[in-house]
């Protein structure tokens, strides 16, 4: 799925003291970025670039992993075997995406355990969208349509990220993510076109609850995203939060019409002059509340994640012990 917390970085960590050698390297690095070169893991890069990426990629990875939890809720409750099979494949993909991304972050010199420790202690962020509950089966469809739709909007530009291992992971992720959005939309379409009035109402209710949090997935407004300019200059980010949000709104309006649902925003209307839709004010106080740990499910999500990790400790240890013993046996043989 996706990370939006990429802008929530501590203040500029750039250190004032630099050697002349580092200054030259940085100049060379900036020149490479300016001409659209990709940066590989072993290439020299400024500390701040490295840290920004570690933060962004690990938050992205955490979002994929935590993103499995709201859907896990419905694996055993899916209405048909077909939907259950699809949901399983989708959740497996999220796990895979998390792994691609952790691996990409590790190329920057952080370890998997360090990233997990940051997530489990609550220091690291993940996309705030996963702190909302999935209350009905229609939520699964809406998560696919809106949440994965917003994720795709965000991730496609990242396939051109200047840091190559991240860009390569994003190419794979985007290829797979399309199925996520399409299956969600299709399941909603079935409920809207063939469902009972109660099922249709369930879809509308899910849309009402997920619409605004989905718009928040693109992160704070550009004016409140102090790191955006640097990230865009470095090719870590290709489009601003507000640009992406606008693209998403414009895309969703027609899709909602096709579905036959309304979007819960009385101010949403086409602006002929701009050639885009105007939309209502986002409740940023809610966004910051959820990011700050006070969303409906923050505690539950983190607890589920930590308990999965802790309860799996004996498996990880046993696998290592087995491998060590096998290695000794093979040497002896």
């Amino acid at each position: 799925m996706y990370t939006q917390a990429m802008d929530l970085a501590p203040k500029d960590e750039r250190t004032a003291l630099r050697s002349i050698e580092d200054a030259q390297r940085e100049e060379h690095f900036e020149a490479r970025i300016a001409q659209g070169d990709f940066i590989e893991a072993k290439d020299w890069m400024p500390d701040h670039y490295r840290k920004t990426l570690v933060r962004q990629i690990s938050q992205h990875a955490h979002s994929e992993i935590v993103g499995m939890l709201p859907e896990g809720n419905w694996l055993t409750r899916a209405p048909t075997l077909k939907r259950k099979t699809i949901a399983l494949a989708k959740v497996q993909d999220e796990a895979g995406h998390g792994l691609y991304l952790y691996a990409a972050a590790e190329t920057l010199g952080t370890s998997r355990d360090q990233m997990f420790a940051a997530l489990h202690s609550g220091r690291a962020k993940y996309s705030s969208i996963f702190n909302y509950p999935t209350l009905s089966w229609a939520d699964m469809g809406v998560v696919g349509w809106l949440v994965d739709g917003a994720a795709i909007m965000n991730q496609v530009p990242l396939t051109r990220c200047s840091y190559a291992p991240y860009a390569r992971a994003m190419v794979r992720i985007c290829r797979e993510e399309s199925f996520h959005q399409r299956q969600g939309f299709e399941s909603l379409l079935v409920m809207m076109k063939e469902g009972t009035p109660a099922q249709q109402a369930m879809v509308q209710d899910a849309v009402n609850r997920w619409w605004w949090p989905s718009l928040m997935m693109f992160g704070p407004p550009d004016a409140d995203s102090p790191n955006t300019a640097q990230s865009m200059r470095w090719g870590i980010k290709r489009l601003s939060n507000d640009e992406l949000r606008q693209k998403f709104v414009d895309a969703c309006v027609d899709q909602a019409k096709l579905l036959g649902v309304s979007l819960p925003d009385p101010d949403l209307r086409w602006n002929e002059a701009r050639g885009q839709h105007d939309f209502g004010a986002i409740d940023w106080a809610e966004f910051w509340r959820v990011v700050g740990g006070h969303g409906p499910c923050n505690t539950e999500r983190l607890a589920a994640r930590v308990s999965a990790w802790d309860n799996g400790a004996w498996v990880r240890d046993a696998a290592l012990a087995h491998a060590a013993r096998q290695a000794v046996r093979e040497q002896a043989a």
């Binding site: 072993k42 010199g109 990880r316 240890d317 696998a319």
Partner: peptide, 23 residues
């Protein structure tokens, strides 16, 4: 700092349990 060496800030203390090796 030589190319490719992670900066000191990222090299945290070794974890209590060994990570599975990287492939």
């Amino acid at each position: 700092m030589s190319a490719g060496t992670p900066p000191a800030a990222l090299a945290a203390p070794a974890p209590a349990q060994a990570e599975w090796p990287l492939w």
